[in-house]
Computed example of a mutant assay.
Amino acid sequence: MTDVELVGNALCLDFANTVNARPVARRDWLASPAEVVTWARAVGHPVDDDPSLRFTLPVARDLRETVFRVFQPLAHGDAPSPDDLELIHTVHAEGIAQARFVEDGATFRLSWAEPESLRVLLWEVATSAAGLLTRGPLHRLGDCPSCHWLFLDTSKNGRRRWCSMITCGSRDKSRRYYAAHGDRAETE
């Protein structure tokens, strides 16, 4: 069992959330090849732990930060940097150039020759980001006020506030309660 949390509702957002909190992370799923393999398996992408993985990690971390810098402003109704959009476009175009369509039931999906490589996972992340940017719903993007994880709000009423009610939601509610009732709670 792994402690990977997937709350973004889109691969690109879960990839941006591979650090457990911003601005100071205590856990980084892209810090070492072993952690990348664990995270990739959790999202259903078996990545081989081979020597080339170590050389691709800086590229992966750069894409992660770029995805964050694109979607975090969008979650607040602001525009992302054109340079960051261009980097996602470049990685997406590189991936599309290497992909082929394969039949997948009643539809087709993109497939790459070496599905176990980290490079393919990065192409899938860029494809997820391009899909979210072009098809949205961008108005449903959220930025957790506690840890700054990004998520796509798929709730019925569209009022999701935290990445997870179990972690950040409970922590934030407890903090606000004790700030408002701290003295009284200690004397009771």
Score class of each variant (00 low, 15 high):
122 L>R: 06
59 V>L: 12
159 R>S: 13
137 P>H: 13
132 L>F: 04
46 P>Y: 11
160 R>P: 09
170 S>V: 09
156 K>W: 07
79 A>F: 05
165 M>K: 05
167 T>V: 14
114 E>D: 15
36 V>E: 01
44 G>W: 11
115 P>D: 04
7 V>H: 06
30 L>R: 02
94 E>Y: 00
127 T>Y: 11
165 M>H: 06
70 V>W: 04
89 H>Q: 15
74 L>D: 10
81 S>M: 10
172 D>P: 01
153 D>V: 11
144 C>D: 08
50 D>H: 13
133 L>G: 08
150 L>F: 10
118 L>I: 10
10 A>T: 01
111 S>N: 09
25 A>P: 11
127 T>W: 12
106 A>E: 15
169 G>F: 07
8 G>S: 05
136 G>T: 12
27 R>H: 12
48 D>G: 07
126 A>T: 00
66 T>P: 08
35 E>G: 03
155 S>W: 13
129 A>F: 03
135 R>Q: 13
117 S>E: 10
113 A>V: 12
40 A>N: 05
169 G>L: 05
71 F>W: 07
16 A>Y: 07
43 V>F: 08
107 T>R: 15
133 L>K: 06
82 P>L: 12
161 R>N: 00
163 C>S: 06
156 K>R: 15
176 R>A: 14
6 L>V: 06
24 V>Y: 12
146 S>Q: 12
139 H>T: 13
80 P>A: 12
3 D>L: 10
46 P>G: 09
77 G>P: 05
60 A>K: 00
50 D>F: 04
78 D>T: 07
92 H>E: 11
17 N>W: 01
146 S>K: 10
6 L>P: 04
185 A>H: 14
17 N>Y: 01
169 G>R: 04
124 E>M: 12
4 V>T: 14
135 R>V: 06
135 R>Y: 06
115 P>F: 03
114 E>F: 08
168 C>G: 07
143 D>T: 09
22 R>S: 03
167 T>G: 14
56 T>G: 00
159 R>I: 10
30 L>M: 10
146 S>W: 03
34 A>Q: 13
84 D>H: 15
166 I>T: 14
29 W>R: 11
116 E>G: 14
117 S>P: 05
24 V>G: 08
121 L>T: 03
159 R>P: 01
